[in-house]
Design a protein around this nucleic acid. Structure first.
Length: 955
DNA sequence: CTGATCACG
DNA sequence: GACGTACGTGATCAGG
């Protein structure tokens, strides 16, 4: 096969303008705007990746405008005189385009006195004349004249990388109605207001096309003018003939420019990785850098990424928050906020927000539940103190929200305002920043608005500072705390505005001026926090986990929350009733044994009854001066033959199940959707795990037969099934990988029962007892072992436990080294890291309090393992939608595959029965491959999948 | 509001 | 010399 040469000519200057308007306003770690540069970089990357493909380049060069002066200015001094100045934040990006091109080691052509279009035309013709194929990477209509095939058989086409569309002769004809060689004639008639090419006044694309179609050429059309029947058009053609002829010259591309670089020297090879890596690092393009290092088909050579120890010890003790100089910002001034009560005002604000390209958004609602609350208002901020509040659902005290006679303050009709906001909130070109924006996503999704692209200051804070805050609501990432810590500002609190407890009023009843101060401040603070926190990500190594793991997850989790899961109310009600009967019976029996009535549910009363009145031994008082009556104590009593202990244990189980599950879940059913919608927190667990609240669906019973009956109440819709996909032993597998434990790795690779294998190694034989003990030891390892802890669990003495630990370390070399290394690193740096770079801080790791310190040490050993597992399932979740869509499985559609729940190492889906066999392999492979390509694990990730009508059957 | 207890991974 | 034992969560209840 004779390989045909294929030259790609990239119209760099034109691209950057389009990229600027298409992409959000990103900045690099130094604060330089780089959104357009990022777009340019990804485009070059994609082109370079196509090197080996059929339609891909063999040769490639970038053509840039050196100056806007050319021969055209000499013949027409008004040429391009109307060009507006480029936007302020685009100007500094021009030189970066050159840097980017050099970073890719690509030939770059920029000649003074010649426009890029002419240079592209000259190269394209020269290459086509040699019989090469040419692709012009641009969508500039002027260049469409060039499309076609040369006598030597070389084709010239165009590629619009933003729309991934090829433009050949057919596409040109579709656009202009004429063949490519006549495009210049059409353009000459049309003119171009941006380049200030006059054309013929009053002739637009439609008329121009028709004239050329009818007469065959510009000259013929102009010549035919005198014979036309009397019309405005005829007059204009006659009067402005000279303009058209001048325009024809201006739109003609100069195809004989001197070629500064020989075409043969534009050969495209493998891109040298070093300069590219330096460039990507400088501008904080973490995702590309990761691909380069991960060798994922990127343009660079394959290299293995080494999940690193934290590199920068100085970071450890850098004070958080004020370590960076605060960007100069005026103090918060609530009197500067605007309250938008008319369509005109809102219109102006939306326009300003489009221009700002970065807007902080916050919604105010009537309640905390995003699935039920009514929208009361929206606030926006586009700069410090430049914030507004748009009241939408306010009413005066006493009136009801839906009471049409209630007195309402002046406000824009809700649907009108939302229709106006929708284009802004959905525009690709405007970044929407929120504090916990998942909430706003859900509220607005219920009004048909799909907010994107998004940023979240809470998630940014979590990527930077997980674990740093000692305590506090929102895990230390709540807005009031962040404002205090980073901006030194005390926010108005919700309590101050709405009151607390019984006297609390819904936000809709807050007077509008007061509501404006509160709501607009939230948006203002969010805007400020974003500008303050975002740059820290790149500096402190948080970009990868934020951009690649957590940020993409926000809309995914929001979708899961909106889907909810169906629970069978009747089934729960029946269980509640049964549990009520049995607890009542048990209570009577317990009172009888005790010889008096008391509150069984009170540990204090129970302790007194058991150990004082009834005189059982083994009572231990804790620091509260109260006997402990927990499960282990009661089980010991039970073993000594105390019938009351058995009954109390049974009572507790049923009471727990009834109050926490069968009663509470019925209440949690959303009356509108008839489903249960949990709320996931993305910052709930310091290790990076999700947590679930209202209700918590991550602790639904499974371990006991009676508990599993509750799980059976979680069901699929009619005609659907639930599919549960579990990672098997993921944390042990990760421990085997991260600590490089050869015997464990081999056992996993061979698909062995890992606890049995451990039992074999440790005790020399496998039976029920040794396997159970081995399982306990395996978990002990993951949690940071102590001889006393293990002794307690196994019911042996501490020194026996120590012997077992020693045997474990000897049999599984690597584990001890991993533990010691991790603790040393954390002591030194203050944080641990997952394989994907997620940090967890341990501020008490060097505490003088031994218990505190040892607690931190165990947590620090566990965090990289638990956190890596969390990263992996999060990556799987983010990829699941696109993977299902590609397989035609319609993620999120009512008749497609819907992802409903995440339980740390398990994902639960709902789907029509008929899709199961198609969905199973997709889900399986997305989950099993979720660590790659960034991380190549030395153990396979096992995924077990089951299906059934209910959640229990799906296991 | 805190501590004890117990549901999950 | 005493401490207090596995990591990570959230909901509920009793009691101050």
């Amino acid at each position: 096969m004779a390989d045909k040469q294929h030259l790609y000519l990239v119209d760099g200057s034109a691209y950057i303008f389009r990229a600027y308007h298409r992409l959000p306003p990103l900045t690099n770690p130094e604060g330089t705007p780089v959104g357009a540069v990022y777009g340019y970089t990804t485009m070059l990357w994609k082109l370079a990746e196509d090197l080996d493909k059929a339609e891909g380049p063999t040769h490639l060069a970038v053509v840039l405008d050196k100056s806007s002066q050319s021969f055209r200015n000499e013949i027409y001094d008004q040429y391009k005189a109307n060009r507006p100045d480029p936007p302020e934040d685009l100007v500094p990006q021009f030189p970066l385009i050159r840097d980017a091109t050099r970073a890719f080691s690509l030939p770059m052509i920029e000649e003074p006195g010649v426009e890029a279009d002419d240079m592209i035309a000259s190269y394209a013709r020269a290459a086509a004349a040699k019989g090469w194929d040419v692709t012009i990477v641009s969508s500039d209509k002027d260049l469409m004249q060039l499309v076609g095939t040369s006598e030597q058989g070389g084709t010239i086409d165009m590629l619009d990388t933003m729309k991934s569309a090829r433009i050949g002769p057919a596409e040109v004809e579709e656009k202009f109605g004429v063949a490519p060689e006549l495009v210049g004639d059409v353009l000459a008639l049309m003119g171009d207001s941006v380049d200030n090419i006059p054309g013929i006044f009053g002739v637009g694309p439609k008329t121009a096309t028709k004239l050329i179609q009818d007469h065959g050429s510009l000259t013929a059309a102009l010549d035919a003018a005198p014979e036309m029947k009397k019309s405005k058009l005829k007059e204009r053609l006659l009067e402005h003939r000279a303009d058209a002829e001048l325009s024809r010259i201006l739109v003609t591309l100069k195809e004989d420019c001197e070629l500064p670089i020989a075409i043969d020297d534009m050969k495209l090879g493998k891109i040298p990785p070093e300069p590219l890596a330096a460039f990507l690092t400088q501008h904080g393009f973490g995702s590309l850098l990761r691909r380069l290092e991960g060798g994922n088909g990127g343009p660079g050579p394959k290299t293995q990424l080494h999940p690193a120890k934290p590199q920068n010890p100085d970071e450890a003790h850098a004070p958080q928050g004020n370590s960076q100089p605060l960007p100069e910002m005026p103090a918060i001034d609530r009197s500067a906020y605007a309250c938008l009560q008319s369509v005109e005002q809102l219109d102006q604000w939306i326009e300003k927000a489009f221009a700002a390209r970065l807007v902080a958004v916050d919604t105010e609602t009537s309640a905390l539940d995003a699935m039920q609350a009514d929208l009361v208002g929206v606030s926006l901020a586009i700069g410090p103190n430049q914030a507004c509040y748009i009241p939408l659902g306010h009413f005066n005290e006493g009136g009801g929200g839906d009471d049409m006679f209630a007195e309402k303050p002046q406000q824009i009709a809700r649907e009108t305002a939302l229709a106006m906001l929708k284009p802004l909130l959905e525009s690709d070109a405007v970044l929407k920043v929120g504090q916990n924006i998942k909430y706003d996503l859900n509220v607005l999704a219920r009004h048909g608005i799909a907010v994107a692209p998004i940023e979240d200051t809470m998630i940014v804070s979590f990527a930077l500072d997980a674990g740093r805050s000692q305590d506090g609501i929102g895990g230390g990432h709540g807005m009031d705390e962040l404002a205090q810590r980073h901006l030194g500002h005390t926010c108005l609190t919700f309590k101050e505005i709405c009151g607390t407890g019984k006297k609390a009023i819904p936000f809709g009843e807050v007077p509008i001026d007061r509501a404006t101060e509160y709501a607009a401040e939230d948006a203002d603070v969010t805007w400020r926090l974003y500008t303050h926190l975002k740059p820290r990500l790149a500096v402190e190594g948080g970009t990868r986990v934020y951009e690649r793991v957590d940020r993409p997850l926000i809309p995914v989790v929001a979708g899961m929350e909106r889907h909810g899961i169906k629970v069978d109310r009747q089934q729960l009600a029946a269980l509640s009733e049964r549990f009520a009967r049995e607890t009542a019976r048990l209570e009577g029996e317990i009172h009888e044994i005790a010889g008096q009535e008391f509150t069984v549910g009170s540990p204090k009363q129970l302790g007194d009854i058991l150990f004082d009145k009834m005189g059982y031994k083994g009572g231990k008082k804790g620091k509260s001066g109260q006997y402990s009556t927990d499960q282990s104590v009661l089980e010991k009593l039970d073993a000594t033959g105390a019938p009351i202990a058995t009954k109390v244990l049974e009572w507790r189980q049923l009471a727990k199940l009834k109050s926490t599950y069968t009663d509470a879940l019925q209440q949690a059913i959303n009356p509108k959707t008839n489903r249960v919608h949990t709320s996931y927190s993305l910052v709930g667990a310091q290790t990076g795990r999700l947590s679930s609240t209202d209700p918590n669906l991550q602790n639904i019973p499974i371990r006991t037969e009676i508990g599993r009956e509750i799980r059976q109440a979680f069901v699929a819709e009619e005609g659907n099934v639930l599919l549960a996909a579990d990672y098997s032993q993921i944390e042990l597998r990760l421990a085997a990988h991260m600590a490089d434990v050869a015997p464990l790795r081999e056992a996993f690779a061979a698909g062995e029962d890992i606890h049995a294998r451990t039992a074999q190694e440790m005790f020399g034989s496998v039976d029920r007892d040794t396997r159970a003990r081995a399982k306990t030891i395996n978990f002990a390892i993951l949690y940071g072992i102590s001889r006393w802890g293990l002794a307690g669990r196994l019911g042996i003495e501490a020194d026996e436990a120590q012997d077992l630990i020693d045997i474990y370390f000897a049999r599984f070399p690597g584990i001890q080294r991993y533990i010691v290394n991790t603790m040393e690193t954390v002591r030194e740096c203050g944080y641990s890291q997952t394989l994907f770079g997620r940090k967890t801080w341990f501020p008490r790791i060097n505490s003088k309090n031994q218990a505190e310190r040892q607690g931190s040490e165990r947590a620090a050993v566990n965090a990289p393992i638990q956190g890596t597992s969390a990263d992996i399932i999060k990556r799987a979740m983010a990829r699941m939608g696109p993977a299902l869509a590609e397989a035609g499985l319609k993620p999120d559609a009512p008749d497609g595959v819907r992802m409903l729940l995440q339980v740390h190492d398990e994902l639960v889906f709902e789907m029509p029965e008929g899709l199961v066999e198609q969905a199973r392999p997709v889900i399986q492979s997305v989950m099993a491959d979720a660590a790659g390509p960034a991380i190549e694990l030395t153990v396979p990730l096992g995924v077990e999948i089951g299906t059934g009508r209910n959640w229990d059957d799906a296991h």
